[in-house]
């Protein structure tokens, strides 16, 4: 971002973005019934592989796209945060279904009101569960975002094709064992029922 604009890096950035958007390795963080619909989306009838996002990697270190599939409860939120922190840059997040987007109809003591309370989310796919068509629509929206360099991480890192130094993303709140990211007691307890 700080670099002087020039023609060749811009074109190179576009090429990098084009390559990235067609080679998304996904990490399905599947917690609930939406995972059934995700399987259907991956299956031969809808075939997410046509968009290059065919390869679920069950290790966050090898994945570009974290798909949060299903309800995230408060007890599980630190795990989700840790999985996200383990992914290498650049990375994107899709919230799959209403529970991952907003908490859905679970407005209660235990469910996190959306995965975006814990990690930055790039694209939200509504539905309970969403139809495979909606998922593909969301994936294509995400691909447009990647091509335009508008992803959350892309915005933070700046142009990746130029020789900008890699930002130290460890300044983001990480979760070793409850240091920076864990809320202290005074922040945590809203006795009056107000949600932060």
């Amino acid at each position: 971002m700080n670099q002087p604009a020039s023609y060749i890096p811009t074109k190179l950035q576009e090429a990098v973005n084009w390559a990235q958007k067609y080679s998304l390795f996904t990490y399905p963080f599947a917690t609930a019934c939406c995972a059934m619909e995700f399987m259907s989306t991956l299956g031969p009838r809808y075939d997410l592989a046509r968009f290059g996002a065919e390869f679920p990697r069950f290790s966050p270190r090898q994945a570009d796209l974290l798909i949060v599939i299903g309800t995230i409860v408060e007890r599980q939120a630190p795990v989700l945060r840790r999985v996200y922190d383990q992914m290498a840059d650049p990375k994107w997040v899709m919230a799959f279904g209403v529970c991952a987007s907003t908490g859905g109809f679970y407005q209660n003591y235990t469910v996190t009101p959306g995965a975006d309370q814990v990690i930055p989310v790039d694209v939200y796919v509504p539905g309970c569960p969403p139809r495979p068509e909606q998922v593909m629509d969301g994936l294509m929206a995400l691909m447009n975002r990647i091509q335009d360099h508008r992803g959350n991480v892309q915005r933070e890192l700046g142009p990746t094709a130029t020789a900008t130094p890699v930002l130290d993303r460890r300044r983001l709140p990480v979760l070793p064992d409850g240091t920076s990211m864990v809320l202290d007691k005074a922040q945590r307890m809203p006795k009056d029922g107000k949600v932060r």
């Binding site: 939120a77 209660n108 309370q117 809320l183 006795k191 029922g193 932060r196």
Partner: peptide, 18 residues
């Protein structure tokens, strides 16, 4: 309280749900 939450972890810029 009906909608009280006791989150363990939040982004600093998490969207408000008030």
């Amino acid at each position: 309280p009906q909608n009280a939450r006791q989150p363990l972890v939040r982004r600093p810029d998490a969207p408000a749900t008030d």
